[in-house]
């Protein structure tokens, strides 16, 4: 069979059109009660993340405690998960054993994915055995860009199998796929071998670009189309670049108006972020008490070390 445009299989996306669409989400005015609900829900959706070469057990311990109790305000829910490297899972387990917080671990030669499939699968198994509840994998962008779509999908299917009971999040690394047509196609290629409750995710946070409202919207629309066709609900995780509460509300508006109420919870939507958390807390505090607090008022999470 001759090679053809991947948009022929999964549909095209118009750049100007999608960017205009998401600009409309940012004009929604979220006030008072609806703002508080949105901010709180965003907290419960955070995958609090540290993915640094300099991560240590001490850093992970402080991240875990921040995850359990983001603020002194007891009405604020814990975050959804912590997201760390495989070697630190055991440390995280110690601090989160009796909590609902999931341990997510990146695997598959994160962030480039440039290793043999065997090694990548072994890393997944290592992470699952160490106690990871969720695996964040990267797709093979090299294979994708060379047109080997079936091979990309086979690799994802192999990772699904290696995950066992662990939830899988498939990172497309959208900035390396470059076009919205590719992002849409990659979303479908992944979803076709995922299980209900697995996720697709925008970015590693380690490449040039990260999540934008537009590339997230392309993926939300792919999730919607896939769900309506198959009945399999796939979750969404934008990651990287979401630093302010206002941005997070815009992302949630997009979810509400694209996928509807069933996606407005942490089992189907996550934010891959670290500094976002404290801005959410700052805004919640301001909504409740009418004034902004200084940054040092809130305990540090993962940023600025």
């Amino acid at each position: 069979m001759t090679k053809h445009s991947i948009a022929d299989d999964f549909g095209a996306v118009d750049r100007v059109g999608i960017e205009e669409r998401v600009a409309k989400f940012t004009t929604r005015s979220i006030k008072r009660k609806s703002k508080l609900w949105g901010l709180r829900t965003a907290v419960s959706m955070v995958d609090l993340t540290t993915l640094e070469g300099k991560d240590t057990p001490g850093k992970v311990a402080s991240l875990c405690h921040k995850a359990r109790q983001p603020s002194d305000d007891a009405t604020i829910p814990p975050v959804a998960a912590v997201c760390i490297y495989p070697s630190l899972i055991k440390e995280a387990r110690k601090h989160l054993a009796d909590s609902p917080i999931k341990i997510a671990s990146v695997a598959t030669a994160f962030p480039s994915g440039q290793s043999s499939l065997k090694v990548r699968l072994q890393e997944v198994k290592y992470a699952v055995n160490a106690g990871a509840d969720e695996i964040d994998m990267v797709i093979n962008r090299g294979l994708f860009l060379s047109g080997e779509y079936d091979a990309v999908q086979d690799e994802i299917a192999a990772v699904v199998e290696a995950c066992g009971d662990a939830t899988l999040k498939v990172i497309l690394e959208v900035s390396e796929l470059e076009t919205y047509d590719n992002v849409r196609a990659a979303s479908f290629i992944a979803m076709q071998v995922l299980r209900a409750g697995d996720f697709i995710k925008t970015s590693t946070g380690k490449a040039g670009g990260s999540a934008t409202l537009a590339n997230t919207q392309v993926m939300l629309e792919a999730i919607r189309d896939f769900y309506l066709d198959t009945g399999t609900p796939i979750g969404m995780k934008p990651a990287g670049g979401i630093r302010t509460a206002k941005q997070a509300l815009h992302y949630l508006v997009a979810v509400k108006e694209t996928l509807g109420d069933a996606w407005l919870n942490s089992s189907r939507y996550r934010f891959g972020a670290s500094s976002l958390l404290n801005d959410l807390l700052r805004q919640i505090h301001k909504e409740k008490h009418g004034a902004y607090q200084a940054p040092y008022y809130f305990s540090e999470a993962a940023e600025s070390y």
């Binding site: 309506l228 949630l252 509400k256």
Partner: peptide, 16 residues
């Protein structure tokens, strides 16, 4: 019985 999306009132926008 086909899947449908729910555009309900879980998160209502307050009047603005």
């Amino acid at each position: 019985g086909m899947p449908e999306l729910i555009f309900g009132d879980l998160w209502e926008y307050d009047p603005a």
